[in-house]
Amino acid sequence: MLKKIKTVFGLLAVTAMMTGCSLTLPVNATSNTVGTKVGTAKATGYLGVLFFDADASIRTAAKNGGITKISTVDIKHTSILNLVVTYETIVTGE
């Protein structure tokens, strides 16, 4: 019985370690009307500090969405135990 309990707790610990969290926060809004276009730019880092050729800038997100008049800017932050971290900039506008 004790061996089964240890196995269950071991599986729960591994599952908890493999989970991540995601948080989307507003960064900016303009007086421009909310448009129908959405552009994104993403940067993924490892160990929380190593980012290679990453560009999650507002300019790149707007360019990727074909946006010339920005309405809103949001940042989505996703982390898996701070081992793999992703920042995604989401821009809306026309």
Results as ranks from 00 to 15, higher is better:
residue 51 F to A: 07
residue 66 G to V: 13
residue 21 C to N: 11
residue 70 I to L: 03
residue 72 T to F: 05
residue 8 V to C: 02
residue 40 T to H: 03
residue 24 T to A: 08
residue 35 G to A: 09
residue 85 V to Y: 02
residue 5 I to N: 02
residue 12 L to I: 11
residue 42 K to M: 05
residue 32 N to W: 06
residue 7 T to W: 05
residue 93 G to V: 04
residue 17 M to I: 13
residue 88 E to H: 07
residue 53 D to E: 13
residue 47 L to N: 06
residue 73 V to N: 00
residue 78 T to C: 01
residue 40 T to F: 04
residue 90 I to S: 01
residue 68 T to P: 05
residue 68 T to S: 15
residue 73 V to T: 10
residue 71 S to G: 08
residue 29 A to W: 05
residue 94 E to D: 14
residue 14 V to M: 13
residue 13 A to G: 13
residue 31 S to M: 06
residue 37 K to C: 05
residue 87 Y to S: 08
residue 3 K to F: 05
residue 38 V to D: 08
residue 26 P to R: 13
residue 30 T to K: 10
residue 89 T to W: 06
residue 83 L to H: 07
residue 83 L to T: 15
residue 60 T to F: 04
residue 43 A to C: 15
residue 4 K to G: 03
residue 32 N to Q: 08
residue 61 A to G: 02
residue 24 T to Q: 14
residue 85 V to L: 10
residue 62 A to G: 13
residue 94 E to Y: 08
residue 11 L to Q: 06
residue 19 T to E: 09
residue 39 G to T: 01
residue 73 V to S: 13
residue 15 T to W: 03
residue 31 S to W: 07
residue 59 R to Q: 11
residue 28 N to Q: 12
residue 52 F to W: 09
residue 13 A to S: 14
residue 75 I to P: 00
residue 89 T to E: 11
residue 57 S to R: 03
residue 66 G to A: 12
residue 37 K to Q: 05
residue 63 K to Q: 09
residue 52 F to Q: 10
residue 83 L to W: 11
residue 92 T to F: 01
residue 63 K to V: 08
residue 37 K to P: 01
residue 16 A to T: 12
